[in-house]
Amino acid sequence: MSTEDTIKISAKNVQVHYDDTHAIKDVNVEIADKAVTAFIGPSGCGKSTFLRCINRMNDTIDICRVTGEILIDGEDIYDKRVDPVQLRAKVGMVFQKPNPFPKSIYDNVAYGPRIHGLANSKSELDDIVENALRRSAIWDEVKDRLQAPGTGLSGGQQQRLCIARAVATEPQVLLMDEPCSSLDPIATVQVEELIDDLRKSYCVVIVTHSMHQAARVSQKTAFFHLGNLVEFGDTDKIFTNPEDPRTESYISGRIG
């Protein structure tokens, strides 16, 4: 487990405001590479907001202001010289609701590689698409209908397609905002297995409302409450022996 110790992302004094709402209050956290980190906490505590800071998706919201530093591989991503568009190619994102584009399954997955010029030829692109779909455990279900619209898949298939789409761009970090919230238990298990597999190559950060899911898939857990990062540490420790009373009451179901 020595690889877990390399720090991929480190946030220093991060503050986020939406107009007057102070959504993230002075958060410091270090996220390990080749590991799954889970963000948990009650609704509205700022998990999604913080996750969106990591790939600067908050830039697309006019009223959102971010201060502080977030370093990926030691580089401040909020530095003026960093292009958020290129950053997002490196830091992929999977959203809460599956949002395949109204295109074919193939084109959905090929979207990122095409934009970033990752393939030199059609056959290379075919390989990238096949690989991404295989890694996302959906290849067998769609291999015969790659030209069918992605929106025609079931919810769970769509979410795995979105994961494949993110994986195809070869990101270093994968951010997932409640990726299983619209899935049934079977699809959830599939996606969880997939996350566990993705951990071998990526730094994965996942927001989840399910305590069980956090316990099953993550190595580190961060507990947010009202915009504060209350507690951060090994998942086992957070769930068995939390230090902060707020964490304790949340995981035992007293605040929610």
Partner: peptide, 22 residues
């Protein structure tokens, strides 16, 4: 839906790429 645009931005597409292709 905004989710379409977010999905495209999240993959590192620029604004005009997002508009043209999604």
């Amino acid at each position: 839906p905004q989710a379409m645009r977010d999905g495209s931005f999240g993959l590192g597409a620029t604004k005009s790429e997002t508009i043209r292709q999604v």
